[in-house]
C-alpha cells in the first residue's frame, strides 16, 4: 500500500528526515515511536502534504502512485488521512458543514454520487456512536472551544466519515485522560479492516495497549533505526530511548 524509500525532508535549512524507509501493507498497524525531535511529526506532515516541509530526496508510493506529486486534497481523496496532533480551530465553520463538503468532494473524486442531506445525516449518526460524540458538538464551530479529548474524538469521527485506506495518527494520545484514550482507541479499532492500514505515531507506549501494532519502528535522528514486533514498544517503555541512542552511535 505505502512504500517509503530513502525519504529526506527539510524545514527551512534544517534536515529532519534523513533517509527514511517504511513499507506498510493493507490490514497492518504500524507504530512509529521515538524520542522528541526525532522526526515523527515531520513524517506525518510530509505524508499528508503540508507545504512547510520541503522533500529533498527519496520517494513515497501509495498504491504505486507518486504521493509527493499530489496536493493535500488529492492525497485525501486517494485515501490518506492524518489525525492531527493539534487539530485546528476554525471559527464560523461547523463540523457538520465542513464534513459534508469534505465527504462529497472525496466522493466526487472517486466518481461516486454526492450524499444528500438525509443520507449524510444517517451516516453521521452511525459514525457518531463510534467515538461517543454528540450532535450538539458537531453543529458548533469546528474544534472551537473543544476540550482536548473532544478534539481528538472529532479527528477519529472525521476518519470514520471519510473511510481512508491509510490513517496516520499523529500523537493522538497526547493530552488525553485514560477514558478519552480508550474511547479514541476503540474507535480506531472498530474502523480496522483487512483493506486499510494504520500508522500510529507516538512517544509513549500507552496508546499501544489499546491499539495493538503489528510492527513497532523506532525513529531517531530522521531514520528508522530499529523495527520489531509489538514487544519492542514495551521494551522502550521500560528502558527508555537511551539504549537505542547508544546502539546508533556505537
Amino acid at each position: 500500500m505505502l512504500s517509503i524509500k530513502n525519504l529526506q525532508a527539510n524545514i527551512g535549512d534544517k534536515q529532519i528526515l534523513k533517509g527514511l524507509n517504511l513499507e506498510v501493507k493493507a490490514g497492518e498497524v504500524h507504530a512509529i515511536m521515538g524520542p522528541n525531535g526525532s522526526g515523527k511529526s515531520t513524517l506525518a506532515s510530509v505524508l499528508a502534504g503540508r507545504e512547510d516541509y520541503e522533500v529533498t530526496g527519496g520517494e513515497v508510493l501509495f498504491y504505486g502512485k507518486d504521493l509527493l506529486e499530489l496536493s493535500p486534497e488529492e492525497r485525501a481523496r486517494e485515501g490518506i488521512f492524518l489525525a492531527f496532533q493539534y487539530p485546528i480551530e476554525i471559527p464560523g465553520v461547523s463540523t457538520t458543514n465542513f464534513l459534508k463538503t469534505a465527504v462529497n468532494e472525496v466522493r466526487k473524486a472517486r466518481g461516486q454520487e454526492p450524499l444528500d442531506a438525509v443520507q449524510f445525516l444517517t451516516r453521521m449518526k452511525e459514525k457518531m456512536k463510534l467515538v461517543e460524540i454528540n450532535q450538539a458538538l458537531l453543529s458548533r464551530s469546528l474544534n472551537e472551544g473543544f476540550s482536548g479529548g473532544e478534539k481528538k474524538r472529532n479527528e477519529i469521527f472525521q476518519m470514520a466519515m471519510l473511510e481512508p485506506k491509510l490513517a496516520i495518527l499523529d500523537e493522538t494520545d497526547s493530552g488525553l485522560d485514560i477514558d478519552a484514550l480508550r474511547i479514541v482507541a476503540e474507535g480506531v479499532n472498530k474502523l480496522r479492516t483487512k483493506d486499510n492500514a494504520t500508522v500510529v505515531v507516538t512517544h509513549y507506549q500507552r496508546l499501544l495497549d489499546y491499539i495493538i501494532p503489528d510492527f513497532v519502528h523506532v525513529l531517531y535522528q530522521g531514520r528508522i533505526v530499529k523495527s520489531g514486533p509489538k514487544e519492542l514498544a514495551l521494551e522502550l517503555e521500560e528502558k527508555g530511548y537511551d539504549w537505542i541512542k547508544d546502539e546508533v552511535s556505537a
Binding site: A48, G49, R50, E51, S71, P72, E73, R75, A76, R77, F81, L82, F84, P87, I88, I90, V93, F98, L99, T101, A102, V103, E105, V106, A109, Q158, L162
Partner: peptide, 19 residues
C-alpha cells in the same frame, strides 16, 4: 486552517471560500 481543510479532501478554492 487551509491545510486542515485540504487534508480532508476539500480543494484549495473551496477551502478558501469556506474560510
Amino acid at each position: 486552517m487551509l491545510f486542515y481543510l485540504r487534508s480532508r479532501g476539500i480543494s484549495l478554492e473551496k477551502a478558501k471560500a469556506l474560510l
